[in-house]
Nucleic acid binder design. Structure first.
Lengths: 153, 153
DNA sequence: GCTTTCTTACTCGGATACCTACTGTCCGAGTGGAATAGG
DNA sequence: CCTATTCCACTCGGACAGTAGGTATCCGAGTAAGAAAGC
């Protein structure tokens, strides 16, 4: 999984702590010592997914587009990684010794693809049950205070 | 996830159907129309993981190293992809605005890493509950018959 | 007939090439708040 | 004092380069079964 997921998740928690005022992307990058231009790319992905919204112009920046308890870890992962399953069945069972059978006779998904999909659904279910607000609540309040103070400067 | 996982899983089911006699890797590749040299690499990974064993020499080939009901999908995935978690926490929370805090003060894993790990455990648990024997049993018996006939030639 | 040698069909592992996706940088275009200049 | 202009800080998106890992191929070394040759 790409590093952008970790970045995006931390950024969402931070934006939740900082409230409604838009935060400049460059300052966000400085807060975690990340390459500003590349973090910008991940922020664009969050924006396209509707997780954040951004204000252009002088006092512009990024903020959460909806309350943090309505943003799940799954939302963030999907925004960065895409919605595709990790496992992609390429139907090799239809090739080689079964190349003579018509493709229409393979109506059921193969057991492997089925099991992989079921496992990924479990994974997604767990991520969907974890909200940014929940993660923020499980973090010591000093961290939030410190972040607010740091961004005020 | 790499394509090798699908190949390896299908191969394991096939080896289970074919019984104890070692099967040449090249014939295995032909059965699914896969590049023989590259499938060889995946077979080496299965062997290193102890899932299969191989016999060198003229009548050599590959076979399962243990009964198919003792081989799980998780075993196969780990053999091909490695045991590392998909999500790797790089502790960016310790950088930037928190660079002044000593690393020793971050004793608890961050909530994001914790949630990701829990989700992956769910995924692994599901894959560990799926055996090659179970997958083979859920496949129509004609497929096994056809495979045995094809390999007999 | 028995032993030895040879051939053949395999596996194993390293070296190599290619290509895609992730990582990272740079630049120009657009936008809006704030400062400034002109009336 | 009020309006219009300029400036600046910021976002957005495309173009580009570097790198790691997945995909794929080839070759030489080793091994064992079976055929062939020699005694």
């Amino acid at each position: 999984m790409s590093e952008g997921v970790e970045w995006a998740a931390h950024v969402c928690i931070l934006l939740h702590w900082l409230g409604d005022r838009p935060v400049p992307a460059d300052k966000l990058a400085a807060a975690y010592d990340l390459p500003p231009a590349y973090l910008g790319k991940q922020l664009q992905a969050l924006r396209r997914a509707g997780i954040t919204e951004s204000a252009p112009g002088r006092a512009g920046g990024v903020r959460l587009a909806r309350p943090a308890d309505k943003v799940t870890l799954l939302d963030v992962v999907v925004a960065i990684e895409g919605a595709d399953d990790a496992f992609a069945c390429t139907e090799i069972r239809q090739r080689g010794l079964n190349a003579d059978r018509p493709a229409s006779s393979f109506t059921e998904p193969c057991g492997i693809a089925h099991a992989m999909r079921a496992a990924e659904l479990q994974w997604r279910r767990h991520l969907a049950a974890t909200t940014i607000a929940g993660l923020a609540a499980d973090t010591p309040t000093e961290a939030a205070e410190k972040a607010r103070a740091w961004f005020a400067t």
